[in-house]
Amino acid sequence: MNRYRFVLLRPLQLVPVLIGISLVSFLLIHALPGDPVRTLVGMRAPPDVVERIRAYYGLDQPVIVQYFYFLRSLAEGELGRSVVYRMPVSDLLASRAGPTLFLLVYATLLGIVLTIALSVTAARNRGRWPDQTIRAFSTIGLGFPSFWIGLMLILVFSVRLGLFPVSGAGQGFVDRLHHLFLPAFTIALALSAVLTRTLRASLIEQMDADHVTAARSRGVGDKDVFWRHVVPNSLIPTINLLGVNLGWLISGTVVVETVFSVPGLGFLMTSSIFARDYMTVQAITLVFALATVLITFLVDVVTVALDPRVRM
């Protein structure tokens, strides 16, 4: 298949996934405990009012018809109302998306820097103690509970050393970098444990590859060989793994935002569960799923655009 057709066909493959996501979200709302109308008007409202409201929201219709109502309101960007914040859920989510996006990008960048530093050190000292230490880190790091690592970082860097604030997201770019450093570092640590294994392995594989030997025999210096031939060719599997792990990264953000009280979507989700603000919880679930699918799609398209060998 040529790659222009791929770019055109790939969005079509998204359609069943998007339908599935909307169906799961609808079922999650539909299966919620309690009667939504009673939640809205209270237990003492007269029965005819309850019936009128039920009919107004289409809740007296068959489930399948309700699903189409749900789809229509989704298309209009209507996600329901938050019973806690007394505002449309869509507005609430928009006001909280900033810190989450910032944290995700920050954590990913820190994670990449950490991964490259660790993998390069390990690959260049293959079999010696720096390599052994880094490999041990990547095995132990897979089992790091992010919420605990976050608390340990607070214990050392905030309580003992007083270097970073314990909570919040900060105002302005520099302040935000400072406030979100520990949360981002917590996620980056776990991320680099996952990615370092892959990058170290592919660096070592590339160091023995024919094109590297060829470059050496042409008299290219060691440094140039490593940074211009070995590293760029090793990055593709790592970038793919990063794309695959996007959902995992978002899950980590939910937990870490809660540990550090970062006013983003993840913290909103956990606090809304406690407040029984179900519409908000399900809307965030939906938004996270849509974001995951769309970003994965974009990564796919970019990979194909960059690497003509990938033709799926």
């Binding site: 996501i21 169906l23 999650l28 919620l32 995992w248 937990v255």
Partner: peptide, 24 residues
């Protein structure tokens, strides 16, 4: 395979939490 695609589209922990909200 279609069901699989849908489940994998959700961030794992987020979907677990959303289901636990329904179940208590």
């Amino acid at each position: 395979m279609r069901i699989l695609d849908v489940v994998l589209a959700f961030p794992w922990l987020v979907l677990l939490m959303a289901i636990i909200v329904v179940l208590g």
